[in-house]
Write a protein that binds this DNA or RNA. Structure first.
Lengths: 232, 232
DNA sequence: CGTCCTGTGTGACTGCAATCACCCCGCGTC
DNA sequence: GACGCGGGGTGATTGCAGTCACACAGGACG
């Protein structure tokens, strides 16, 4: 499929670029669709492309030596991934997999390099993204250190509460991860996640509204659990 | 204490810089000593300095919400830390603590920024270091996903085997982390680490030589354990 | 309509690592 | 020498989360 400059403009990182530049980049880029659970980027390979997510949802995942899946982060529409090789030309550290059918725009590594050279202001954005990634991973790592499993789940849930809702008493989490996805991120079993959720629902702290919406009815209580001020 | 250009030259990152530049940087930098378990960089603060380790050993550590310590990485002499704020001006994500009495050279963030602007080749090195950090964290995260604890310990041990010894049958690990430090990195208890080590020693796969040297006598067997090809 | 698949809910069982309690040893230092 | 302290070693106990097995609901799809 053909990449139009208009398509590229939908991505915050690129939206400020002059039309001529976008024409140029568009000509060298490509679009593709990825089915559910399709691999978008392979770990351990020099992927030579930066992926921009137009539609769908991706997850960075790794696998342990014994084949277990390890969830690392999500990629939402408008965001990009695979940028690490811009920094050292090394290989992609983790797999990126489509959680839902997705549409992905790929810009070749070289094109991206040229672009960053010409527009250093983009470089700052990409750097900040990597820095943010490090911060997130550090936080996630500290989550895994929690001995209390329920607390771990609550922390992750708290992370998913939109910033704007954190002070309110009710929060909406759209398209929440499945229990399995949460389990993989937190290094616990799917059943355990389900049990924690049951417990939260019984106490009317969260409730589900269809498959694509999770309502946190008592945000402050959730925070207390997350911070260990209360035990579940 | 006064920082001399000669001192700065001992750091690989800075060794190629012209003397005039080093004079300049030295004038704005400072040296300090850190006692064992002293905090070198504080998490959550805008530290505004890049720390170069001249002597000793540092560890990046985080704390879970409930106060548990989480070990992240080590800093060896000649290396630096605290560079993440160069990328986004954000705060330091984790604590950096001295494992042994250490000597640290601090270069202010602004000075460092100027330096990188004037010498983009340094920027590549710093970028590569951050990228490498991300890779390491990703790997460490996948370690934590291992359900078999003994395997986790063996993997960590395998990581500590110097690159040059990985193909040999005997490897030397200088200044190995204490059981406690390993336990913290792997999110398991100190006793469990001890028991795994006992098991490895009984099978004559590793042996200790004083406090500051650990000898891996059967490197290939250790690798098999690490890769899950054999069970301990 | 039936079928398939994914996601969720739940009970029973069990194994394994955390915890606790205590030991020893070596080292620095008062 | 006595002492404290950090580091390592070990047994007994226990609780908790993983695992297994199965049930059920809802959506997609022919």
């Amino acid at each position: 499929m053909v990449v139009t400059p208009q398509l590229l403009k939908t991505f915050p990182l690129l939206s400020g670029l002059p039309d001529a530049t976008l024409d140029d980049v568009a000509a060298q880029s490509s679009v593709r669709k990825a089915a559910r659970r399709a691999i978008v980027l392979n770990a351990g390979q020099n992927e030579e492309q930066i992926c921009f997510l137009f539609e769908g949802r991706l997850q960075g995942v790794d696998f342990t030596i014994d084949g277990r899946e390890v969830g690392l982060y999500f990629v939402e529409p408008g965001e990009f991934c695979g940028e690490l090789c811009l920094f050292d030309g090394g290989s992609q550290p983790e797999f990126v997999m489509a959680l839902t059918p997705s549409v992905i725009v790929s810009i070749p590594l070289n094109t991206m390099h040229e672009l960053l050279k010409k527009h250093p202001e983009l470089f700052a954005t990409v750097s900040a993204k990597v820095a943010g990634h490090v911060r997130k991973m550090t936080f996630q790592r500290s989550l895994l250190g929690l001995p209390n499993i329920a607390q771990r789940v609550c922390c992750q849930l708290w992370m998913l509460v939109p910033e704007k809702d954190k002070e309110k008493e009710e929060a909406h989490i759209r398209n929440p991860p499945t229990h399995m996805e949460i389990a993989i991120m937190l290094n616990i079993s799917r059943e355990t996640v389900t049990r924690v959720f049951q417990s939260l629902q019984n106490r009317q702290i969260v409730k589900r509204d269809g498959t694509s919406l999770l309502v946190v009815t008592q945000v402050s209580v959730l925070r207390d659990y997350a911070e260990g001020k209360q035990e579940l």
